[in-house]
Design a protein around this nucleic acid. Structure first.
Lengths: 191, 191
DNA sequence: TGTATCTGCCTATAGCCTATAGGCAACACG
DNA sequence: CGTGTTGCCTATAGGCTATAGGCAGATACA
């Protein structure tokens, strides 16, 4: 009987899990499904992962990292509304291209893990965007929260199909929303 | 052997499911848990519900209805920023008081069910709020989407603990955000 | 009040999920 | 070329959804 080892590793499992998430949804990412994918028995996965929670955590960290990279790249060299738009689009584009990973990025991490994750970079980049708007604390924190809310809210409602009832194009509402945010932030600038 | 019937019904199961959702999370609402709660065998529930999807759908419809009632009550007799604030607070207060039901209200319904749900009232009320801002189409649709995004985004990030890293009070950011939205909408008013 | 029907909850079963314990063979290294 | 490590295995158990079929409590009607 010719038996070749599958060559599993936490990294390969995470990668495959992320792809599965995009195809079938983050909640369909199970050890069973992954075992099937690698043509391996479920128990074998436990040599590489403590449990299914670790798998989800790893996918979440991977997605946060990947998304942060894209946002950083999009924002580089831009300022003001230009930077705001690039930031927002990077977010939305990622969620549309990788819905499962985007969901994964919202997976609730325990505080320590979160503190060591790319989530920190996300917060830093949001504050960097706001440099163009001259906001003093606590306004800057308020603005970070508002931006995060709008982007996450829009993207998740859009993904849920909430914007397909009328024939107003979602793209137009998105541009309109970014305009409004830019104006709102400029209005808040410290004199 | 004294055997009394448990007196189950779709309504009682939905109610109990909603309560369980608030206590343990919407994803913890299972037929098993419900059967334990009523001290009944799981199979018995299938006389009242087609399957677990129907249970979740019923809880979702219940939550949408309840939330719409609260919003309607909060908004009644108000206009302009006053109405906007009442609308927003009704939303946020509900999500904080009933996190599981709020999650349930976001459960994805099939189009027919959604069309017959209180979700329709939510959309109508959002448009009613905007009457105070004199927006012509398609701006009104854009505004509905933006408001929905901010409210849902804020509430869900707040619930996920995303706003507890700094010591800026979430309440202040919320008020600041509503101020900004009000200003942004007034700016869009048709001249 | 007796009896027939209906229906609510039951047992039994099966499939899919996570998880643990313990075994054997493929691989890597001296 | 042996020998130890480790990658994947079988076996097992517990929790979840779901279906089929059975019995007894509730109800309705003579």
């Amino acid at each position: 009987m010719v038996v070749v080892r599958a060559g599993l590793s936490p990294e390969r499992l995470t990668r495959a899990g992320a792809e599965l998430a995009d195809e079938a949804g983050f909640d369909q990412v199970t050890l069973s499904a992954l075992a099937r994918h690698f043509d391996v028995k479920v128990a074998s996965l436990y040599s590489h992962l403590k449990n299914s929670h670790e798998l989800k955590t790893r996918i979440a960290l991977f997605a946060l990292e990947e998304l942060a990279d894209r946002v950083a790249h999009a924002v580089a060299g831009r300022a003001g509304k230009d930077a705001l738009t690039a930031f927002a689009n990077a977010y939305r584009d990622y969620a549309r291209a990788h819905p499962g990973r985007y969901d994964a990025a919202r997976f609730r991490l325990d505080p320590q893990t979160a503190a060591a994750s790319a989530g920190v970079r996300h917060a830093q980049m949001a504050r960097a965007i706001l440099r163009g708007y001259d906001l003093a604390e606590p306004d800057q924190t308020h603005a970070v929260r508002m931006l995060g809310s709008v982007f996450h809210g829009y993207v998740s409602l859009e993904a849920a199909g909430g914007f397909s009832h009328t024939d107003v194009a979602s793209q137009d509402s998105w541009a309109w929303t970014l305009d409004s945010l830019d104006a709102a932030l400029r209005r808040r600038a410290t004199p």
